[in-house]
Amino acid sequence: MERSPLETLIALREQELDLVERRFADAVARETAAEERLNAAQEEILSEQRLASSPTAGDGAVEAFSRWLPSGRQAVVEAQARCREAALDRETVRSALIAARAAMEAVRTLREERKEEERLEGLRKEQNVLDELAVRQFGRT
């Protein structure tokens, strides 16, 4: 049996939806990874600060921390930027996902409407046959 254009469209919409769902999952994973890098960079600053401020730390540890701190802060700034980019990417893909789901739902609704129209047409034909039989058999209109 040949596939109807509507069934072909549904298959295409399903493929599109699957692709966008995978892209969304990837975007969420990238965002999660970016947040983890940010947390790690922030935690590294705190850890280094604890070491430098330890009662057993010498002047060298404090000086090393003060020299390292700008690069630690830069790592945090860069991680924050990656988080913002990942969040924007996720929202962009999320919008595409919403559109793909809406398109899929529209096609499914159209298919159901067509099935209902076909069912009603079948009932009308059946009723017409019954009416014609009644006219033939009983002479009524």
Rank of each mutant, 00 (worst) to 15 (best):
E2N: 03
R3D: 02
R3C: 04
P5L: 09
L9Y: 10
I10H: 02
L12S: 08
E14Y: 12
E14Q: 14
E16M: 13
E16I: 05
L17R: 15
L19H: 15
V20T: 09
R22H: 08
R22V: 06
R23K: 15
F24D: 10
F24H: 15
D26I: 13
A27F: 07
A29Y: 03
A34V: 04
E35N: 14
R37H: 02
R37F: 06
L38A: 14
A40T: 11
A41E: 05
Q42L: 10
E43P: 01
E44P: 00
E44A: 12
L46D: 10
L46G: 13
L46K: 08
E48M: 08
E48Y: 09
E48I: 02
R50S: 00
L51N: 02
L51R: 07
A52W: 02
E63L: 07
R67L: 08
L69K: 11
P70E: 11
P70G: 11
R73E: 12
R73H: 04
Q74H: 04
Q74L: 09
A75P: 08
E78Y: 08
E78D: 09
A79T: 00
Q80R: 15
R82T: 09
C83H: 03
E85C: 01
E85H: 07
E91I: 08
R94V: 05
S95V: 03
A96Y: 05
L97D: 11
I98K: 14
A99E: 10
A100R: 04
R101P: 01
A102I: 07
M104W: 09
M104P: 01
E105H: 04
V107R: 00
T109N: 00
E112A: 14
E116L: 14
E117G: 04
E118I: 08
E118F: 08
R119S: 08
L120V: 06
R124I: 05
Q127R: 07
N128V: 06
E132Y: 13
E132D: 13
L133M: 12
R136T: 09
Q137N: 15
Q137H: 14
T141K: 13
